[in-house]
Simulated scan of single mutants.
Amino acid sequence: MKFVLEVDMSEGAVAADAEKELGRILRYWAGNVRHYALTAGDESAVYDSDHRDVGRWRIVEGP
């Protein structure tokens, strides 16, 4: 299985300060990881500090 995180960095808060926003996204996700089974098919939206949907994380099958 793979953990895949995709974040659109082309606009919004992420575009304005990518280092800060990506750090915040990763900290938020890591703090909530215990709430997910982390099995193939699990996924959720990723939001920036302005609460805009900027991507997704997901668990997929495969190498």
Rank of each mutant, 00 (worst) to 15 (best):
G41F: 14
S49I: 13
A40Y: 04
D42G: 03
S49W: 11
V46Q: 01
D48W: 13
V33S: 13
R56W: 12
I59Y: 05
Y47H: 14
W29G: 00
A13Y: 02
G55S: 08
R27M: 11
I25A: 03
E6K: 10
A15W: 09
G31N: 10
E21K: 09
P63H: 05
S44F: 08
E21L: 10
D53F: 08
D42E: 15
A45D: 14
H51G: 02
E21P: 06
R56I: 07
A30L: 11
K20S: 12
E19W: 04
L22G: 02
A16G: 07
G12F: 04
A15V: 03
L5W: 01
V46L: 15
E19A: 12
V14L: 07
A18F: 07
H35I: 04
V4F: 05
A37M: 09
E6W: 04
E21M: 08
D53Q: 13
E19M: 05
R24K: 13
V46I: 15
E43D: 14
A40G: 06
V60Q: 09
M1K: 05
G12T: 03
I59Q: 02
R52V: 12
D53P: 00
A37Y: 04
E61L: 06
I59G: 00
L22T: 12
F3N: 02
A40D: 13
R52F: 02
E21H: 10
V7G: 01
T39G: 03
W29N: 01
S10G: 15
R56F: 13
D42R: 06
P63I: 05
A30V: 04
G55Y: 08
F3A: 04
I59H: 01
H51V: 09
N32K: 15
S44H: 14
G41A: 12
Y28R: 10
R24D: 08
D8R: 05
M9Y: 00
G31W: 05
D17T: 09
A30D: 09
R34P: 00
T39P: 00
V60F: 03
D50H: 11
A13K: 10
L26G: 01
D17Y: 10
A15Y: 12
I59S: 00
G41Y: 13
V54K: 10
G31S: 10
A16V: 04
A45F: 11
G62M: 05
S49A: 14
L22V: 15
L26H: 08
V60G: 00
